[in-house]
Design a protein around this nucleic acid. Structure first.
Lengths: 302, 302
DNA sequence: GTCACCTTTGAAAGATATTTTCGCGGCGGT
DNA sequence: ACCGCCGCGAAAATATCTTTCAAAGGTGAC
């Protein structure tokens, strides 16, 4: 019966897996030559050794299994198995340590793995920035307006048009009457119908997209509550907006157009609006959500 | 921020030890009950499980050794031994430095500021998980296919439809011929036109959306290169997919439908595809990008 | 409701890996 | 040169992991 470990799960009782190199140095003098060879090999490449069995490590160091096990004992582990686990831990730590070298731009010759990492990192950054910069008072006001709205119109063209549609889809699912407009003419035509109690939302990264500002102005002048989701809180769109929700912008580059990060940012804002409204209208939203889920179930194959 | 693994020095091919919780979430639906129990136990306490033998873990979860090994396989490891090593690595990482994070769900009575913080955090998590779980080989293959495609069709309905449109918009901007279809009939009708050298992409979170699978099947049978972007790598859609890109799934809750995080994940994948293609076709993509930018300038007001 | 079929599961056999045992051979002291 | 001790590895013994196989449980067809 081998393998005795304390019952406690995450107990930090055992040796902190760091300082392995130091331990090797300290204990080396008290080891025999073969054991030193093993210890040094292990200290030099924890990751590599973690992948080896006793036999493998014995061969690699030109020794025997017994020696490897003895070395593990000297290093303070019950046996090789546990040394190996510690090694794996060490390797993982080392690897995660040297992570944040991702500040560079995406280059034309970046390997695909780097592209993934950099993009993910950038978008995470965008999300953090957006969350930090979002004015919760304005957001709350916008949510209140939406929760009591008779009708909601959302304007957005280009990439922002998709965000507008996303918001619309979500609001519809919780029983609100919402429309997305990406055709500027139709948008204006519809905006004329709005009145007090209705909500109009304009989504534009630049804050100066005429096709989106125009319908918002009309809605504003007809007494609707207007919301602007924009990356430029000083843009032209804000002059017709009762509530301004600011999105954040990541540096753009040649390969990474601004539309990409602004979309991420806009979607977060839109999600916040949605959840906010769902909270306020919970009684009605919850059943509506599950109802729409049910309705789609049969569209899924086995 | 979560671990983004670099080039990975010594450790050969094995799965990056990150994102285990995410992988469990992704794969859980395709597991049997007992396996799920094992997977969840492991995800909940990596450190504790790393200290257990197969037999120990089997007893703890009330299953058999065989089930434990099977679970390890599903999670992408050759056997339990390797899972255990990965677990040890994960545990070490967790212990080393880790923000406790807001793990709580979004509640009905959360103040709006918390909603923003939690949503942002969740989406960041989703991005990290997606990046960690994305198969760069498959991604590279998909990019290659796209870069040389005569024509690209993208299928997606519902929330995924917007992602499909997003991809299409981007590809169009760099000179590819791309169409998004959310009408299943039209999608099939168009799929018939595809042939070798064309690319068809299906986007579906569930992996079993008939309306999206059908056109992909037709495209597949007509010789087009097919790509599936899905959260269920074992879903029905994958049987007609030459390349499978897996999106990650966050735990969903009543207020936060799965569609939300899957969209974030899908968009990251789509962005990676786009950047990848832009890299490959740089000579042609760069001028096309700035050209489309120029063309829109006059639409912005002063 | 019943049957046939498929899936899931655990017990036990089989294969590997780890630990222990045991004795050989080198080395320093006498 | 002889004796005894220490380091070392081969191989046996044990623990651990993997595979196989048959029974239990569930599902859909009739």
């Amino acid at each position: 019966m081998k393998e005795i470990f304390g019952s406690a799960s995450g107990s930090p009782g055992s040796t902190p897996p760091a300082a392995l190199a130091a331990k090797v140095r300290t204990l080396a003098p008290s080891m025999t030559r073969s054991m030193q060879r093993v210890a040094e090999t292990v200290a030099a490449d924890p990751a590599g050794c973690a992948a080896l069995t006793v036999t493998g490590l014995a061969e690699l160091t030109g020794t025997s299994e017994a020696t490897v096990v003895r070395t593990a004992r000297v290093l303070g582990y019950p046996g090789y198995r546990d040394l190996r686990l510690a090694l794996a831990g060490l390797a993982a730590q080392q690897q995660s340590g040297r992570a944040p070298a991702l500040t560079t731009d995406i280059a034309v010759d970046d390997p695909i793995a780097d592209v993934v990492a950099k993009l993910a990192y950038d978008e995470q950054q965008t999300l953090a920035d957006t969350a930090a910069g979002l004015d919760t008072v304005q957001l709350g006001a916008a949510v209140t307006a939406l929760a009591g709205a008779r009708r909601v119109d959302v304007y957005g063209v280009g990439a922002s048009g998709l965000v507008a549609q996303d918001l619309t889809q979500k609001l519809l699912r919780i029983g609100l009457i919402a429309h997305a407009h990406s055709d500027p003419h139709l948008a204006v035509t519809n905006a004329v119908q709005l009145k007090a109690g209705d909500v109009a939302i304009a989504i534009t990264h630049s804050g100066s997209t005429g096709d989106v500002i125009e319908p918002l102005r009309v809605a504003f002048e007809h007494g609707a509550t207007t919301v602007a989701i924009t990356g430029r809180p000083d843009g032209a769109v804000t002059q017709y907006a009762d509530h301004i929700l600011t999105t954040s912008t990541a540096r753009e580059s040649e390969l990474r157009p601004a539309a990409m990060s602004s979309r991420t940012s806009q979607l977060l804002v839109v999600d916040c609006l949605f959840i906010g409204v769902a909270q306020r209208t919970y009684e009605q939203a919850a059943p509506a959500l599950s109802a729409s889920y049910e309705a789609l179930a049969h569209r899924h194959r086995r």
